[in-house]
Design a protein around this nucleic acid. Structure first.
Lengths: 182, 182
DNA sequence: CCAACCATGTAAGCTGTTACATGATTGA
DNA sequence: TCAATCATGTAACAGCTTACATGGTTGG
């Protein structure tokens, strides 16, 4: 079964703490971090599929229509697989918010080496993408950019430069404890 | 008929210069600016719909299977309507790349006042969103953020701060000629 | 002549959203 | 008791992508 990003997000939240469908909806509702709709139509069908596939376990609450989802071994390992995938240029360019989602859930794995690999892969992808953008500026199309187009382009580029410094900061913040331990 | 963002992008490109479907595909292919797929399945159906709705005009090239799309009055006015919509907080939070697309096409309207309105609306939306994010940090959920979650949050926030300085720069760059004219 | 590119289109599917529908529980 | 919130679910569709399919044109 193919798990979608929303599916991974749900598994990740359930690993952090077992929750009902309603709890999960609220988790999306309360945070202003864009991402997904909190509407029932988004979440319940995905939860049902994940439960079918054994990625999570639905436990009924006695004397209630309510139920709570718990993590399973399979769910944990699938999530880990997803989080361990290297960051690609395409992911950076088109769905960087999903990259950040992956980063956030990385914490649950408690594996600093993986975090480091991830952040380095992130830096590589961002750098490559920035090189591509710079290369584009040197092409005929790039040089022919109108003022507004150029400004829009600069918007993107300075954003990705910000991503690079963020990654450096993140590494410094998270990997410092490892250094201390030496 | 409802025009989708991809539809507006196509109208905008056609206004800039009449093109065939194939030309439009290449426009997406060559630019590393994320946005849309250049595959035929994305573009041709939308072009057909836009032509049906009178937003663009398909002109056959004699002795060829090829044809070129030209802008229409209706297409121009619909695009202008789309570009004139104020930037909302939700748009900033969830589809800022579309906001930037709108900005880029704004140039074709040749209306500095509209550009200024747009950028100010953009600044307002970004500021409000930043306030929302800051407010979230003060809530129980915000204070309970794990280190990784906090870093992901900071990533977003510094990105939006970057958007604010970009908007200021864009205003300075574009509106300076208006000042000179006084 | 054959590879590469020009050129257009359809069908199926993926991912997620909006809108609809229903009923239980809680607190003022 | 009645509004608000808890709680779960389905149906329809939106918007875009991938993969498939087909044929013309050009240059080495």
């Amino acid at each position: 079964m193919k798990v979608t990003p929303l599916g991974y997000a749900l598994i990740g939240l359930i690993i952090a703490r077992p929750r009902s469908g309603y709890d999960l909806r609220k988790a999306f509702e309360d945070s202003p971090l864009g991402v997904y709709s909190s509407s029932p139509g988004s979440i319940y069908p995905v939860l049902a599929k994940l439960a079918d596939a054994g990625m999570i376990e639905k436990r009924a609450i006695t004397k209630s229509t309510k139920s709570v989802f718990h993590p399973t071994t399979k769910g944990r390992s699938e999530l880990k697989k997803w989080l361990s995938k290297p960051v690609t240029v395409n992911e950076i360019a088109k769905e960087i918010d999903i990259t950040l989602l992956r980063f956030a859930f990385l914490e649950s794995l408690n594996d600093l080496r993986l975090t480091q690999t991830f952040l380095e892969s992130f830096e590589d992808a961002v750098s490559t993408h920035l090189e591509n953008l710079n290369a584009f500026l040197e092409t005929t199309d790039g040089k022919a950019l109108s003022p507004y187009g150029r400004l829009a382009m600069e918007n993107g580029m300075s954003g990705f430069e910000g991503q690079l410094s963020w990654a450096a900061r993140a590494k410094a913040t998270l990997l410092i404890s490892a250094k201390k331990r030496r």
